[in-house]
Design a binder for these strands. Structure first.
Lengths: 187, 187, 187, 187
DNA sequence: CATGAATGAGTTTTCATTCAT
DNA sequence: CATGAATGAAAACTCATTCAT
């Protein structure tokens, strides 16, 4: 309950000011609680970010696992993942901002949640690519590296777009990304 | 002279510790000068980063301008740019680390040098893409967005690789990136 | 019942970490109760220490009172007290640690129990010395001051020994102290 | 210069309030400097205490070394040391308070200066005792333990006296202690 | 009588920047 | 131009204690 309130408030402030410029005092004041209460629910300021990334990672991991069982072309699964990812982003723009900005924040690379978000998702992509190669859907390529490249492509693009304009057309970006990736790997 | 020394030392420490964990005192001590002397040559701590990014941006901008005059397929120019970029990185691994890490640091997005590095380079890519479309070398696409996508792809991939392993094979990554981008855009 | 459990647990933790580094939370967790429950039984964190010192003071005061009625040389009563004191220490090393450390803790000098432990015991010694002088067993001396000196000698020696080695030979120390004190005062 | 000012001010406040109740802010305000300036001269709040103890230890160590070369009875050297020690205390009552209180503060036992003060001085006493035994000036005894006992006796007595009364007669205490110790060890 | 989430004043420490020498 | 002591705002985090359930 109150934990949710802290997370929600944190995302709002983090989206506006960035991690380094967000203080625990700001969060507590905006959430209408005492500073100490943050520490009742989170081990540290970093742990808030950790939780955000972990939860968002899990959403995506669950979705990617569900994709595995689904019939159809492997290559289309990237389209589907992007549909899912951008839909989530559209629902909560602040959250999108935080994920895009802080997943690249050198300060936070050690957090479990960030690590998973940044390293496990590319691994899922690799798995899809491996299967796609087996059935000859895509050109021969280093699936590990390409998994990472695809992840970087998506993340970097969202990051760039999001920090420049408030009202960007997510749909345009999504379609351009989908085409870019599909072309990049297909035969 | 002394300014160069400060820059060189800063890059070494920044590569090892990251911007937030690098203090002006560390730089002055390692450079063998007084803290105050840093401020004779730089307006602020941020200004050091600004200068680093500006100078690296200019190297790449100059190279891209020189590419323009060169004959040959537009599409190959991305290969050439990546050859140049990775060569530079190979010469100075510390610098590569700094560019990869801090170009995505939310704290530093307002710096002139970072802005140019992060926003102008994609614009150069856009120009190349525009010409490539005109002569029918590549498929129809939103060149502005795709310019950004290509930049994000390169930067993100280097960043990911560089913070994970010390002795990564830059050549493998370069070749995979070149193939990825070429396939992504060509007809 | 539960109060005893809190005391027992507190002594264990206090012996290991010292007063300033022991939190009420630690005590409650190790004792398997809620933090709030500590405050059902004790007015404050300090009150736990107060109780410990008071109870240990009373043990010694009772023993010293019983010594009064006993026949024999006054001067031997210090031997007996030390026998009693060291026996108690040997039974509960953690308790010994707490008494030795915290009786000298400036933070805790105002506690009733500590005051009694630290100021009343020397008074008992004074009484013994007064009688010993009267019957000419010991040399003439300021009994108030010497009572304090004897107490300080005992406490300080135990404190020094106990914080240095875990497995010290209490018996050696006791005998050395007994000889030291007896010689110091006798005619 | 300013370092001396910080030390002087710290001793005044520490004497009045004790280590745990002395804040860095109090010191800086009373010394008329900025909080940060404390950290220009001292690594931490603890380091101030460390310096105080180290310097006082060295005074005494130097004196004890000079005593070694002096002719005369070993046993009288304790008298001389106490003369010196009490003279120093008389000059600076605040300092005496700090040494007496905090040398027994469990929190500070790890500091180099405190360690030296509390463990090296007894070692010097041991050396004196060793020689005294050799020439038959004192009764046979465990010199290591007795060195510690003498130290504890002195420290504890000063501590006890000093925290009770502001205007105690140091001279009485000194004489009583001298007699106590001399009797305790002599043949 | 037990619980444990909530409190918030208070603490030490850091560090970019300045400026008198 | 160089120096480095001095600055002081600001930050994360702690923890004894309370009180509604």
């Amino acid at each position: 309950m109150k934990k949710e309130q802290i997370l929600k408030t944190s995302i709002e402030i983090l989206a506006e000011r960035g991690y380094a410029n967000t203080t625990t005092r700001m969060i507590s004041e905006k959430a209408g609680i005492a500073v100490g209460s943050i520490y009742t629910h989170f081990k540290s300021k970093e742990a808030i970010l950790d939780e955000i990334f972990l939860s968002e990672y899990e959403k995506r991991a669950t979705y990617l696992k569900s994709l595995k069982k689904i019939q159809g072309r492997q290559i289309d699964k990237f389209d589907r993942f992007l549909d899912f990812h951008f839909m989530e982003l559209d629902i909560n723009r602040d959250l999108m901002m935080v994920l895009a900005r802080e997943s690249g924040n050198p300060e936070l690379q050690d957090l479990d949640g960030v690590q998973k978000f940044v390293h496990q998702l590319p691994d899922f992509f690799k798995t899809i690519l491996d299967e796609a190669i087996e059935i000859g859907e895509i050109r021969p390529l280093n699936t590990t590296l390409t998994g990472k490249i695809i992840f970087s492509t998506i993340r970097g693009t969202v990051f760039d777009s999001v920090i420049r304009t408030k009202d960007l057309d997510l749909d345009d970006i999504k379609k351009e990304l989908q085409a870019f990736i599909k072309n990049a790997i297909q035969i």
